[in-house]
Design a protein around this nucleic acid. Sequence first.
DNA 1: AGGCATTAATTTGACAGAAAAAATAATTCT
DNA 2: AGAATTATTTTTTCTGTCAAATTAATGCCT
Lengths: 408, 408
Amino acid sequence: MDDSGAPTAARGGGIEARRPGRARVLRTIRQHTQVARVDIARETGISPATVTAITADLLSEGLIERISPDAGERPKTSRGRPREALKIRGAAHLVAGVKVSQGAITVLLVDFEGRELGTQEIPRAERRSSAAALVDQIALAVDRACHAIGLDPARVSAVGVGLAGYVDGLRGLVHWSSALTERNVPLADLLSQRVHYAVFIDNDANLVATAEHLFGRGQALRTFLVVTIQHGIGLGVVIDGQLYRGARGCGAEFGHTKVAPGDGAACQCGQRGCLEAYTSEYALLRQAEEVGAGTFTDMAALQEAAAQGDAGIADLLSAAGEYFSMGLANLINIFDPELIILAFEAAGNHPLCQPEIVEAVHSKVVQVDVAPPEIVVHNWGDRMWAKGAAAYGIERLTHLLVEDLGAP
Amino acid sequence: MDDSGAPTAARGGGIEARRPGRARVLRTIRQHTQVARVDIARETGISPATVTAITADLLSEGLIERISPDAGERPKTSRGRPREALKIRGAAHLVAGVKVSQGAITVLLVDFEGRELGTQEIPRAERRSSAAALVDQIALAVDRACHAIGLDPARVSAVGVGLAGYVDGLRGLVHWSSALTERNVPLADLLSQRVHYAVFIDNDANLVATAEHLFGRGQALRTFLVVTIQHGIGLGVVIDGQLYRGARGCGAEFGHTKVAPGDGAACQCGQRGCLEAYTSEYALLRQAEEVGAGTFTDMAALQEAAAQGDAGIADLLSAAGEYFSMGLANLINIFDPELIILAFEAAGNHPLCQPEIVEAVHSKVVQVDVAPPEIVVHNWGDRMWAKGAAAYGIERLTHLLVEDLGAP
DNA sequence: AGGCATTAATTTGACAGAAAAAATAATTCT
DNA sequence: AGAATTATTTTTTCTGTCAAATTAATGCCT
């Protein structure tokens, strides 16, 4: 039963995916927030006996806990032994999510259940900084967030960090990011060496996808896409219940897929004809200026101008919509996902978030006698991004705890 | 050991992927054509003991066989007990690959090792036929192919069928195909009911991907793409060692991704601006006629005309190249694969198969400090397509034999 | 109140897949 | 012939899982 000194090193068990049962059970509990063992068994197909065994392990490891009978709400409709609900034990671990954007670093502290414990935002002096400086800033931000709610930073188990750019999440490598002055920065390692907690980094669109998978609309789905519209345009791909990363670790660069041949609009990335060059806020603002319609501060101003009858701007916006719907339709044609989630900052008014866009997308999708995937819109403010990073931290940490062989 | 009457029903073992060890061992043997147990163990990470156990099973089931010492070639360089090579037992099963194209049905008979035993081509009277007629034609073609080489058709274990269109391979359903007059045809079931062998169907691009995965350049790879250029343009996606099929079973419609906004060129599929409408042979021939350059019979004639200085045609072809390179670049930007295989019929001369295209693709791919994926070209004549179908048949049959629990 | 029906959870016994360790087999080298 | 070496097989052990039986906790009924 307990450690009797004998080495319990790696013996039996599969090679590829370790202890799949444990992972599925824990994931099921997370999905349902609270759920009885019978239901876990029914849902996963694992036998009740094994569910008991696995949950007993998880209980003894402190990762989950029983829910006190809680006289308050009794279903009362059922006879028989009452089911005992289980839930994730929030106190098991403290996780931070960090979103690095151009103007600030946003930190969100959550417990192992995903409940928000506190948040902190510290401004960044420069838009781009050296790797060393960024590491300092992140470490500092996490510490401050802890102190702000009276928690010892030493209790943090894991931190998820999200930043825009080409990020190889598995290797913890930032090929390029608009937040860094250097290229090919092993950011996860650098930060790890400075702090005591586990560090996981990824492209920010992947973080949103993870968050939707773990806590949002993607929970019950196997295959879905998340398109993020922020400064640039990002894509997170979940295939068969798993985040897809390309061979080089930096796949899904949707924003830089080409939508115009030849000499299309110039993009930040140095190439031409990128989707982002036609649809992102920064590109549209620049183009509006170029067509001589004056200077604008944000998307809302552009919309206002278009509504006032500025034909040049209206053209820009309608072209953006056309290209965007083209890009989305192509994603559907290629991936045939169950669902597409659009993550906008200010969804309601964004020109790429109008019902006509969805209609246009459907008109460009290959027609078969099965309904095309649904397209939904979610609001993702700056702090939601941090929450995505936290979700990613939880997921990777859970993976360590559940699938790898026990740490001493 | 043997059936003693007791029900050996489903007991232990995982829930999702059954007997992964067996599958990996068999796949490894297939990849290497012949390989010793030690090497299987080293390569797969499975212990030698387990490899012995698994191969013993496979031997007793007749799926593999030992290679006779074969005094001919002795490495002689090593001491110790000589390794005993294993190989797939070709005689274990007879599999047919069927390629349905507009003018003919091509059948290729192979053994379980993938060695070609015979081939047969029967013409089709109409380009499109009813499901019932097609089923008849396929069954007949397989029978004829067997008789032609003196084999009893009853010995055929499985048949893989490939056809162009929107095909849901797992459910055996043809949403739409240019070879059929009807929609939503459960072709696999219909054919199954008429014959004794197992029937597996799929989109033809998926078959090529399977063939490359099983026998070709994709053998050692986890993630690669196959783009087929025939009548239309197809895409097969292998992710993490597995063929990717979308949620509705008909993903990867690369030919109908949109490359031009608004009122682009009209496509066979009824929509506008599809890649296929700019790059496929039938579309280019029609457009050449429309620009008044006369009537052409095939791609080679177009190239000839362009070379002779017909500017209109040269424009058409260069636009085709531009759009095609755009499409390929977008695939890389989105999937970040290890390799892209272009499957052409007459590769050498095809205008989409020139070195400039590959260059153009690389100039449109997101730049990170890792080399972009290689792009290779393979020749796929009509009978190679049938071979792809055969590979698919072998793969699915193997899956039945290896991963499912023993049949009585 | 006491027994019965019902549902949930646990215990028990067994088995399959896989690995470590030990044994055996088939060679070459000395 | 014997030692060294490498490959394969056998033996033992371990882990995850399951089916069946058992125990637990409750409501319903008389």
